[in-house]
Lab assay of single mutants.
Amino acid sequence: VTTYKLVINGKTLKGETTTKAVDAETAEKAFKQYANDNGVDGVWTYDDATKTFTVTE
Rank of each mutant, 00 (worst) to 15 (best):
residue 16 E to V: 05
residue 47 D to Y: 05
residue 27 A to K: 00
residue 13 L to K: 04
residue 21 A to P: 02
residue 8 I to V: 07
residue 21 A to V: 07
residue 44 W to N: 00
residue 40 V to H: 06
residue 48 D to A: 08
residue 12 T to S: 11
residue 7 V to W: 15
residue 50 T to D: 07
residue 23 D to M: 06
residue 32 K to Y: 06
residue 31 F to D: 00
residue 47 D to M: 05
residue 12 T to R: 04
residue 25 E to N: 12
residue 41 D to G: 07
residue 38 N to P: 01
residue 56 T to A: 11
residue 9 N to S: 10
residue 52 T to V: 07
residue 27 A to M: 01
residue 38 N to Q: 08
residue 57 E to K: 03
residue 43 V to H: 10
residue 37 D to T: 10
residue 33 Q to M: 09
residue 57 E to L: 04
residue 12 T to Y: 15
residue 44 W to A: 01
residue 56 T to F: 07
residue 31 F to S: 01
residue 50 T to N: 08
residue 18 T to M: 15
residue 14 K to A: 10
residue 53 F to I: 02
residue 16 E to D: 06
residue 28 E to D: 07
residue 48 D to I: 11
residue 21 A to K: 03
residue 10 G to S: 15
residue 4 Y to R: 00
residue 40 V to L: 10
residue 13 L to H: 07
residue 37 D to P: 02
residue 17 T to V: 14
residue 46 Y to D: 00
residue 38 N to H: 10
residue 7 V to L: 09
residue 47 D to P: 00
residue 6 L to V: 03
residue 49 A to P: 08
residue 11 K to S: 14
residue 1 V to Y: 12
residue 29 K to Q: 11
residue 13 L to D: 13
residue 34 Y to R: 03
residue 28 E to Q: 14
residue 1 V to T: 11
residue 3 T to K: 11
residue 23 D to V: 04
residue 13 L to S: 06
residue 25 E to L: 13
residue 51 K to L: 08
residue 9 N to W: 08
residue 57 E to S: 04
residue 17 T to N: 07
residue 4 Y to P: 00
residue 33 Q to K: 10
residue 34 Y to F: 11
residue 10 G to E: 03
residue 20 K to I: 14
residue 12 T to K: 15
residue 26 T to C: 05
residue 49 A to Q: 11
residue 22 V to G: 09
residue 39 G to Q: 05
residue 17 T to F: 15
residue 46 Y to K: 01
residue 54 T to Q: 06
residue 16 E to W: 08
residue 50 T to Y: 08
residue 30 A to Y: 10
residue 18 T to L: 12
residue 20 K to D: 13
residue 23 D to F: 06
residue 23 D to H: 06
residue 30 A to R: 12
residue 17 T to C: 07
residue 47 D to R: 03
residue 51 K to R: 13
residue 42 G to F: 02
residue 34 Y to Q: 04
residue 9 N to F: 09
residue 10 G to I: 15
residue 55 V to S: 02
residue 11 K to G: 13
residue 31 F to L: 07
residue 29 K to T: 09
residue 39 G to C: 06
residue 48 D to C: 04
residue 12 T to W: 10
residue 8 I to A: 03
residue 5 K to F: 06
residue 28 E to T: 04
residue 11 K to P: 14
residue 29 K to I: 11
residue 7 V to N: 05
residue 21 A to S: 05
residue 57 E to Y: 06
residue 16 E to R: 04
residue 10 G to L: 15
residue 13 L to I: 10
residue 11 K to R: 13
residue 52 T to H: 03
residue 7 V to I: 09
residue 2 T to N: 09
residue 57 E to V: 08
residue 47 D to K: 04
residue 23 D to Q: 04
residue 45 T to E: 08
residue 4 Y to M: 01
residue 4 Y to V: 01
residue 49 A to C: 05
residue 23 D to T: 07
residue 9 N to G: 03
residue 40 V to Q: 03
residue 10 G to Q: 11
residue 34 Y to A: 03
residue 37 D to I: 08
residue 28 E to W: 14
residue 51 K to M: 14
residue 46 Y to N: 01
residue 20 K to Q: 15
residue 20 K to W: 15
residue 32 K to C: 04
residue 55 V to P: 00
residue 33 Q to H: 13
residue 38 N to G: 05
residue 45 T to C: 05
residue 8 I to Y: 09
residue 10 G to P: 03
residue 16 E to H: 07
residue 4 Y to F: 10
residue 40 V to R: 02
residue 5 K to L: 06
residue 53 F to W: 10
residue 50 T to W: 04
residue 24 A to Q: 12
residue 24 A to W: 11
residue 48 D to V: 09
residue 43 V to P: 04
residue 35 A to Y: 03
residue 46 Y to T: 01
residue 6 L to Q: 01
residue 23 D to K: 06
residue 6 L to G: 01
residue 54 T to V: 12
residue 31 F to W: 02
residue 15 G to A: 14
residue 27 A to W: 01
residue 10 G to M: 15
residue 33 Q to D: 10
residue 29 K to R: 14
residue 52 T to C: 05
residue 40 V to W: 09
residue 42 G to K: 01
residue 38 N to W: 10
residue 13 L to P: 03
residue 46 Y to W: 04
residue 1 V to M: 14
residue 56 T to L: 07
residue 25 E to T: 13
residue 19 T to G: 05
residue 18 T to W: 15
residue 53 F to C: 00
residue 24 A to Y: 10
residue 17 T to E: 10
residue 53 F to M: 02
residue 26 T to L: 04
residue 1 V to G: 13
residue 41 D to I: 09
residue 36 N to Y: 12
residue 13 L to M: 11
residue 22 V to T: 14
residue 24 A to L: 07
residue 46 Y to F: 09
residue 7 V to T: 10
residue 43 V to A: 12
residue 11 K to T: 14
residue 55 V to R: 01
residue 49 A to R: 12
residue 6 L to C: 04
residue 16 E to T: 08
residue 43 V to I: 06
residue 15 G to F: 13
residue 9 N to Y: 11
residue 5 K to H: 11
residue 31 F to T: 00
residue 25 E to S: 14
residue 42 G to Y: 02
residue 56 T to E: 12
residue 51 K to I: 03
residue 26 T to G: 08
residue 34 Y to M: 06
residue 41 D to S: 10
residue 57 E to G: 03
residue 13 L to T: 07
residue 1 V to S: 10
residue 7 V to M: 07
residue 40 V to P: 02
residue 29 K to H: 12
residue 20 K to N: 14
residue 44 W to E: 00
residue 21 A to L: 03
residue 9 N to H: 08
residue 10 G to K: 07
residue 26 T to R: 06
residue 20 K to A: 13
residue 49 A to T: 11
residue 6 L to A: 03
residue 54 T to P: 00
residue 38 N to D: 03
residue 35 A to I: 05
residue 8 I to C: 05
residue 37 D to M: 10
residue 48 D to R: 10
residue 32 K to S: 05
residue 3 T to R: 05
residue 50 T to V: 05
residue 37 D to F: 07
residue 1 V to D: 10
residue 45 T to Y: 10
residue 33 Q to V: 14
residue 36 N to H: 14
residue 34 Y to L: 07
residue 46 Y to P: 00
residue 55 V to C: 05
residue 32 K to L: 14
residue 47 D to A: 05
residue 37 D to L: 13
residue 57 E to D: 09
residue 43 V to D: 08
residue 45 T to H: 08
residue 20 K to P: 07
residue 7 V to K: 14
residue 51 K to G: 05
residue 10 G to C: 05
residue 21 A to Q: 07
residue 36 N to R: 12
residue 56 T to S: 11
residue 41 D to W: 07
residue 19 T to K: 07
residue 39 G to E: 12
residue 25 E to D: 08
residue 45 T to I: 08
residue 2 T to A: 10
residue 22 V to M: 10
residue 53 F to S: 00
residue 39 G to I: 04
residue 3 T to I: 09
residue 5 K to I: 09
residue 49 A to L: 11
residue 38 N to A: 14
residue 54 T to H: 06
residue 30 A to D: 05
residue 18 T to S: 13
